[in-house]
Amino acid sequence: HESLTILHAYLRPQMLSSEEPEEYVQKLKQTVRPLASIAISNNNLKPKLSSTLDENDSGNARFVYLSYSRTTEKWNVIHAVERLIFVLEANHFHTGVQMKNINNNSSRESDLHHLPKIQSKSSSINPNDSYLHGFNPSITTTTSIDTRRIMGPGDIRHCRVMIVCLTPKYFLNEHCLNELRLCEIYQKPILVVLL
């Protein structure tokens, strides 16, 4: 009924014909009837997001897919993405990038040994920020001991949320468009961040 009201409010001013309002409304009802039946049938279905899967698979319950530019940018987007991945992982979101420590030491200090090197213009980050969980951008580190599984578009169906790391160049990229389409197909919510 709300949809009908919206349609009516939107379409009525654009009508050029001199139809009687009642006739017009009846036609509109006929038009939206298929939509109503779709809505009813969808309500009878189980949740179609991957949440059904996720409930049985704790690995996917907090899986966040990151869509970002793999092509050459004016600056190194990968560093910013790695920084974002680190924060997400530190806050118990899964990005598919597994950072394993050779020393098998779970202390925060040891985490500093495998942090990605951040190339930043300024060091205005406060390392005491709670969400950083020990992240210190001033430390120069290597990623050579990381064990990483690179996520691809095929993983989008398993994620709970997709974060699109937009840059002006990536916004125009076919890769970005494809991943947004997949996200739409699998009905995944999207968060957009600007890098």
């Binding site: 319950a61 907090r62 966040v64 910013a80 920084r83 974002l84 924060v87 997400l88 806050n91 979101f93 930043s120 213009k121 300024s122 060091s123 205005s124 980050i125 406060n126 920020d129 969400y131 951008p137 709970r160 949320v161 974060i163 937009l166 919510p189 968060l191 957009v192 961040v193 600007l194 890098l195």
Partner: peptide
């Protein structure tokens, strides 16, 4: 749309991003 284009914005806005994620994941 969350702006993370500078270190300062990153520090300020990442907590917002995390909160939104938590909300979306319920």
């Amino acid at each position: 749309c969350i702006d993370l284009t500078t270190n300062e914005l990153f520090s300020r806005n990442v907590p917002i991003l995390l909160r939104r994620l938590e909300t979306m994941l319920g």
